[in-house]
């Protein structure tokens, strides 16, 4: 088994002074190149887990290590996210006044990549997604499936080692859902990236190498 890229130890997240336990002592490891499905009923803590790993939030207790780096020691979460994490959200979350190409290039802005290079790379990424004809379109002018594929392209654009996908197919029809799931799996294999997918969809979960099941903030099986 390859060395763990992601190590989660006793992760806890409380809200409202401990009255709400979104996560309660979750521990697991995952390696580069793996596709890990995080499943469980609504409100079990899937999104919270991804938020903590992606440094969108800080845990109440416990540790997350990425490539040996303790996330508690990260002083510049924005830079960490730009370099190490790719997010795919359920509702694509594209910026409405940016074209698909500009949305895909957005993470590269954070890394200070020159405009010409980042736009060229964005176009190339959209081409791989079969979206080159739509690259100059605003999100409102393309279909839901195309938006979600563009969102996947954005997540992959900086070639981050970890992709966090929160219900990436939840808002798509089955055909587009399969397309998106296939993109994520192929990226994990080809780039040796760790892909964590929070999902209700059993077909998507079926593509994963491993399952993590949460219930009421507790990891019940891995």
């Amino acid at each position: 088994m390859s060395e763990a890229l992601l190590v989660v130890e006793g992760l806890v997240r409380h809200y409202d002074r401990g009255s709400v336990k979104a996560l309660d002592g979750v521990s697991f490891q995952a390696s580069a190149g793996e596709v890990v499905a995080v499943t469980g009923p609504s409100g079990c803590g899937k999104s919270t887990l991804l938020s903590l790993i992606g440094l969108l939030d800080r845990p109440s207790a416990g540790r997350v290590r990425v490539g040996g780096l303790d996330l508690a020691s990260v002083r510049r979460p924005s830079a960490f996210r730009a370099e190490q994490i790719g997010f795919v959200f359920q509702f694509h979350h594209l910026v409405s006044t940016m074209t698909l190409a500009e949305n895909v290039a957005a993470p590269a802005v954070a890394l200070g990549v020159p405009r010409r290079r980042r736009m060229a790379e964005a176009w190339a990424m959209l081409d791989r997604m079969g979206l080159s004809a739509r690259a100059d379109f605003l999100p409102a002018k393309v279909s839901g499936g195309e938006r979600q594929r563009a969102a996947v392209a954005r997540a992959l654009s900086n070639r981050p080692p970890i992709i966090l996908a929160d219900e990436p197919t939840g808002n798509l029809d089955s055909r587009n859902g399969e397309l998106v799931a296939d993109l994520l799996v192929r990226h994990a294999r080809s780039q040796r990236a760790l892909v964590l997918v929070a999902t209700h969809n059993p077909e998507i979960a079926g593509l994963a190498d491993r399952h993590i099941v949460l219930r009421d903030g507790v990891l019940v099986s891995s």
Partner: peptide, 10 residues
């Protein structure tokens, strides 16, 4: 939208 941009590293 600002949250999205921050999430991708802005």
């Amino acid at each position: 939208e600002i949250g999205i941009l921050m999430a991708v590293g802005w």
